[in-house]
Design a protein around this nucleic acid. Structure first.
Length: 278
DNA sequence: ACAGATGTTGATGT
DNA sequence: TACATCAACATCTG
């Protein structure tokens, strides 16, 4: 599930859970969770990094940029990425697919669980601040996105949606929220980034902020939200996962297509691929 | 049963 | 350069 709102929630939870406490031990339940350079493959396991993590202990500091977390555990800087199914939970017993465990000096431990194993941990060379920012564009939520900056970031010939998901341009938007933000801004996912007018860039910047803020509020209900994963609520999105359903604004059936190997959903009426988008 | 999806990010190839 | 495609991995849905 993790896009930026879930990662921000994870960061807040970790801070809250460790406030006034110390991590006294790191237990790796799946040593391949420690990767070279946050690779998404367990085949890039980093055994030496694993040894470093196992020696880490002390108070925890948490940074976030886009979907990437930076953890300072005592003197040890660590990067963490949730991949597609990663999550942090604080509870007594190990959840399914637990990969790592942080033992605290007080209360239940924190587990990193990740069914699909695209997520992972990595040791860092250099400062944690540099590592957490390396290769990422401005954070889509923290950095108040303004139209001009966004227009510059998206100044490329390719279609808007993949550009929005390019973490080097803007850090934090994934498949769902990119689709949703484009709907709110009434922009076609297929429109060339370079075709953004100043006015549409303003609208898109506002839509991104709105979408992420809204989603963060939805997810922000801490670990309870995670534990109730099974309890499926109604699809809270305007277009994502709604192929064939009526657009909430105009009633036109939502379309689905594939861009860059990912499903894209949009309303052809509200988000026309037309010449003038002002 | 099985084919085909799935919120992630890279490494390839044209 | 900049696309698209696949691969990593484990589940879930039709």
């Amino acid at each position: 599930m993790p896009e930026l709102p879930e990662v921000e929630t994870a960061a807040r939870n970790l801070r809250r859970w460790t406030a006034g406490r110390k991590v006294v031990e790191v237990i790796l339940l799946d040593r391949a969770v420690v990767r070279r350079g946050l690779s998404t493959s367990a085949r890039d396991a980093d055994p030496e990094g694993a040894v470093v993590l196992e020696a880490a202990h002390g108070p925890l500091t948490v940074l976030r940029r886009g979907k990437r977390l930076g953890l300072r555990l005592g003197d040890t800087p660590i990067l963490a990425h949730l991949g597609m199914t990663g999550r942090f939970v604080r509870q007594q017993d190990a959840p399914k697919h637990a990969r790592a465990q942080l033992v605290l000096d007080d209360g239940p431990p924190i587990f990193f669980a990740d069914a699909r194993r695209f997520g992972g941990l990595a040791t860092v060379t250099g400062t944690l601040e540099d590592a957490v920012a390396a290769g990422l564009g401005p954070d889509a939520l923290d950095t108040p996105l303004d139209g001009p900056a966004l227009r510059k970031a998206l100044d490329a010939r390719g279609p808007l949606k993949p550009l929005l998901m390019d973490q080097a341009r803007i850090a934090g938007l994934g498949n769902i929220h990119a689709a949703e933000a484009l709907w709110w801004a009434r922009l076609s996912p297929f429109a060339p980034g370079r075709s953004l007018t100043p006015a549409s860039a303003d609208a898109l910047a506002a839509a991104i902020t709105r979408q992420l803020t809204f989603a963060l509020d939805e997810v922000a209900s801490d670990e309870v939200a995670y534990l109730s994963d099974g309890a499926h609520v109604a699809n809270p999105f305007q277009v994502y996962g709604r192929e064939g359903e009526a657009c909430s604004a105009c009633g036109t059936p939502i379309l689905r297509d594939v861009q860059g190997g990912r499903s894209t959903f949009w309303c052809p009426t509200c988000q026309p691929l037309s010449p003038a988008q002002a």
